[in-house]
Write a protein that binds this DNA or RNA. Sequence first.
DNA 1: TCCTATTTAGTAATAATTCGTATTTACACA
DNA 2: TGTGTAAATACGAATTATTACTAAATAGGA
Lengths: 152, 152
Amino acid sequence: MTSQVQIDQRVKSFIAACRQHGIKATQQRMEILRELASTEEHPDAETVFARVRKRLPTISLDTVYRTLRTLEENEIISRVGSMRERARFDANTAPHHHFVCSDCGLIGDFYCDELQGFPPPPEVADMGSVDSVYIELRGRCRACQIKRDRTE
Amino acid sequence: MTSQVQIDQRVKSFIAACRQHGIKATQQRMEILRELASTEEHPDAETVFARVRKRLPTISLDTVYRTLRTLEENEIISRVGSMRERARFDANTAPHHHFVCSDCGLIGDFYCDELQGFPPPPEVADMGSVDSVYIELRGRCRACQIKRDRTE
DNA sequence: TCCTATTTAGTAATAATTCGTATTTACACA
DNA sequence: TGTGTAAATACGAATTATTACTAAATAGGA
């Protein structure tokens, strides 16, 4: 993901993807993607803006935000973490994980010993020490499944 | 977690915990905890505010936010999801997971087939259908570990 | 070349969360 | 059972990330 060839390849396939999705492969979009594809540090919007600006001095922060969303919607990039609009809280102190409905936001607890005691893979040990595991299963709750079926 | 006795028990042990941590067991804090302990729906701050207000009409939204943070810091409740201040983006399209440093915010990718193909436990099937698994290992990165060791 | 989606710029709106400060309260101790 | 004091609260105002609006300019791509 770091070699120049790979990055160029990534941008090239992005252009193809644009054709497919019927969106334009603008300079701005290509440079934003290039920037993200060139780094492993999972930058935020401001950081992307600052860096892309070096090459496209007139780009606006607005465009960066808009583009990041467009790329995300087209599943060309992804967002790290939940980033729900509002924080949600939980008084359940037992070790557990969550099921989250991406339609209505329902959050359910579930328990799973295998996951609970899961040993971090060795490559993680190189990064640092782990002190907790956060797991979220994402999908559609029963009610929202039904709602969807009815609409179609 | 739903019976009145259990909730009362929870509030009582909260009062004890306050003594331990040297923080005050105020009406507001107790009612906020009681509210959270009474539900499984993982409410947000506004929702907690609206409900607690029925019993403590003068409580402020500010207090709810402040208290939720305090409870979280003292590990009496937890927050669902990452809720980083800013959104972070990732152009890595291969299936992978993240290691996150809670000190500096570093995010690293890692790969793990066992986790990748992990079958959702049956209790989750009752809630709905799963279409993705989000996993975050949280801890301290190498650099931050060293920084900590030096400070102590 | 031309049509249209997209960008820019610059301001303003939102919306969640936090801060400043005067006031009140829990609770340790007398 | 009072009381002094640090901790906590209420309330409005401030912050911060993100999105929206506009009109005018630009540039994909057929």
